[in-house]
């Protein structure tokens, strides 16, 4: 996941959910559907690509938590 919130998987999934909501809601317009459908497909592909490619960043903290080590 990147630091740009718009580019996070969560952000993309939220956008996809909004698009799905648009297709299911009263605001649906056939004239706009083609562009929205393409956007949804692109988002889905992006999410799948991210989920497949991203790895976790696991860091062991340098702090020691033993007694009298001054861990804070």
């Amino acid at each position: 996941m990147t630091s740009d919130k718009k580019e996070t998987i969560q952000g993309k999934m939220q956008q996809l959910d909004e698009l799905v909501g648009w297709f299911q809601g009263d605001e649906f317009q056939l004239e706009e559907a083609k562009a929205k459908l393409k956007k949804a497909t692109d988002l889905a592909q992006g999410i799948e690509r991210d989920l497949t490619a991203f790895t976790n960043d696991i860091t062991e903290l340098k702090q020691s938590f033993q007694a009298d080590t001054g861990a804070s």
């Binding site: 996070t8 991210d50 497949t52 991203f54 790895t55 976790n56 903290l61 702090q63 938590f65």
Partner: peptide
């Protein structure tokens, strides 16, 4: 994937 994990040993 894409998760930041801080580990306290």
């Amino acid at each position: 994937g894409g998760l930041r994990v801080d580990v306290a040993h």
